[in-house]
């Protein structure tokens, strides 16, 4: 039986959440799951895309944008999150930067049998750094992205959104 559209997370839904929450800059490094979102963001005039070459650089960049009054968002994969630990600690946790990280949850499956070891380490990594996180798997979960932005703003610290599904085109 075909899965209904409500079972997917569309890139337009994520883009709408970024706009609704006043994001000005998206620091990002592409992964296999974000190309549709990239295409949409590129056409959005209210967003400046800042391509980084290693994910850790997104955190120091976000700190600078926030210091200057902008509203950054970080879009990376969980693999890159793991290499970003010290930068996240020093530049965002240490400087009380309110930033939402939207993280592709590579290897995650709903049934618990992860297909990549990086999925096994992702949540323990976030917990170790004291980072609150929300899981988003389908359009119906998308309000959690706004919850993450609100929590980040109130507590002046990074909050993560784990995207547990691939983006499904322009539907």
């Amino acid at each position: 039986m075909a899965e209904s559209q409500e079972g997917f997370l569309s890139p337009q839904t994520v883009l709408d959440e970024l706009k609704k929450n006043g994001v000005t800059h998206v620091l990002w490094l592409p992964d296999s799951e974000t190309n549709w979102l990239y295409t949409l963001m590129s056409a959005e005039p209210s967003l400046t895309l800042v391509p980084v070459t290693r994910e850790g650089l997104a955190f120091s960049g976000a700190a600078g944008i926030a210091a200057g009054g902008g509203k950054p968002c970080i879009l990376i994969q969980n693999t890159g999150l793991l290499e970003s630990g010290d930068s996240m600690r020093g530049w965002c946790l240490g400087m009380n930067v309110p930033v939402v990280m939207i993280i592709g949850y590579r290897g995650y499956t709903r049934h618990g049998v992860n297909t990549d070891t990086v999925a096994d380490f992702t949540e323990p990594f976030l917990i170790a750094f004291g980072i609150k996180y929300y899981l988003v798997e389908r359009d119906a979960d998308s309000s959690r992205i706004s919850v993450a932005f609100e929590e980040s703003r109130k507590k002046n610290r990074p909050v993560a959104v784990l995207v547990g599904d691939e983006y499904h085109g322009f539907n």
Partner: peptide, 14 residues
């Protein structure tokens, strides 16, 4: 290693 991206981010925002 982060000063360049911090300052660049500040330049984008200001």
């Amino acid at each position: 290693g982060g000063h360049a991206m911090f300052s660049f981010g500040l330049a984008l925002a200001r």
